[in-house]
């Protein structure tokens, strides 16, 4: 996809006072594609976004849009739209003046464009409102409208939903996706929530320590992780000693809870006692203590086993093999439900 890429990030690096934030990041984004940058805090995703916007200057590497190198261009010259985490709406301007801020010229053309984008985010008629009087979700939509009004080449969003309460988040996410699809704009957004990344992004780039771990669709990341980091960061995994599940001694097997099942007899690799059951809907996570500090979760039907019961567990598939010393580093705890 290197040839056809609309936005191309090539070997981008940035350090702050000796601390490496982004280390040689290379990524391509297709025209009209929505790319999510996913990673724990400190993974370099926000720095990458700020480098793209032009608020930081890279130490090395290049940013190319539509064949034009914009690495040294000022943010004002880049024609990238940005939606800030806290929206950064101008408190002294009303909704219309905020949205019109990036438009060249005033007059009827600008007013028409303001109406147009406000309509697109379902805020027609809000022109004269004060931005402080809007709800969080409305502010987010004004911020989106403002960034889209000058018809930017690339849209950047910094944690676009983190400022909203959970009840509002899912609806706003749908609206956001609809609006971005509607204008078919090449989009890069930053998030630390996998659900958000998978739901909103066509592809997801997983970052860790300023490096790209893997980029791919949700299915690819979940089923074929390229690293132990991705395996454990995306979805849940149990870490099992390799020799217990048919591997060599000194290895570590990363296994999804749904890739294990309780069995009555012979083909079980593991044995232990159920210490806890966590209800997650149709199924439950059963915590099994297999001794020697080996504790893992098995996903099974609600009534499969009882707490306190001694069980045998069979492993159907090992997701990722790694060395025991190189235990994967977990960033933020995995979200509540692994994408199925």
């Amino acid at each position: 996809m290197a040839e056809g890429a609309y936005l191309s990030i090539r070997g981008l690096s940035k350090a702050f006072e000796g601390t490496v934030a982004v280390a040689g990041l290379t990524l391509d984004v297709e025209r009209g594609e929505i790319l999510a940058l996913l990673g724990p805090s400190g993974s370099g995703k926000t720095t990458t976004l700020r480098l793209l916007a032009g608020f930081e200057t890279p130490d090395a590497g290049a940013i190319v849009v539509d064949g034009e190198d914009v690495t040294r261009q000022s943010p004002a010259a880049r024609r990238f739209g940005m939606v800030f985490q806290h929206y950064a709406l101008f408190p002294h301007l009303d909704v219309a003046a905020n949205v019109a801020f990036g438009l060249r010229g005033k007059g009827e053309d600008a007013a028409r464009r303001v109406r147009e984008v406000l309509e697109m985010v379902d805020l027609a008629g809000y022109e004269k409102r004060s931005v402080a009087a809007l709800s969080g979700g409305q502010q987010q939509r004004v911020a989106l409208a403002r960034s889209l009004a000058p018809a930017p080449r690339v849209l950047l969003l910094d944690e676009p939903l983190s400022n909203l309460d959970p009840a509002l988040r899912e609806r706003t996410r749908r609206e956001l996706r609809r609006a971005i699809r509607h204008v078919a704009i090449t989009t890069v957004f930053v998030t630390h929530e996998q659900e958000e990344a998978f739901d909103l992004g066509d592809r997801v780039a997983v970052l860790s320590g300023g490096r790209l771990e893997q980029v791919g669709t949700a299915d690819e990341l979940y089923d074929e992780p390229a690293s132990s980091f991705v395996a454990s960061f995306v979805g849940r995994t149990a870490e099992l000693p390799g020799e217990r599940v048919g591997g060599r001694a000194g290895t570590l097997a990363l296994v999804r809870p749904e890739a294990m099942r309780f069995v009555a007899n012979g083909d079980a690799q593991l044995e232990g006692v159920v210490t806890e059951r966590r209800f997650v809907g149709a199924q439950a996570y059963f915590t099994v203590d297999a001794g020697d500090g080996m504790v893992f979760e098995v996903q099974a039907p609600l009534k499969a086993v009882q707490v306190g019961q001694r069980v045998r567990v069979a492993v159907d598939r090992v997701l990722f093999w790694t060395h025991a010393e190189a235990r994967p580093q977990r960033g933020v705890p995995p979200g509540p439900g692994a994408p199925a």
């Binding site: 916007a53 943010p75 024609r79 990238f80 739209g81 800030f84 950064a88 709406l89 101008f90 801020f101």
Partner: peptide, 20 residues
């Protein structure tokens, strides 16, 4: 972020100073 927002919307130094 307010000044950055103005900058990414294409406002130059003086316009940022004056308007934001």
């Amino acid at each position: 972020a307010l000044e950055e927002a103005a900058e990414s919307l294409g406002a130059g130094r003086w316009r940022r100073l004056w308007r934001v």
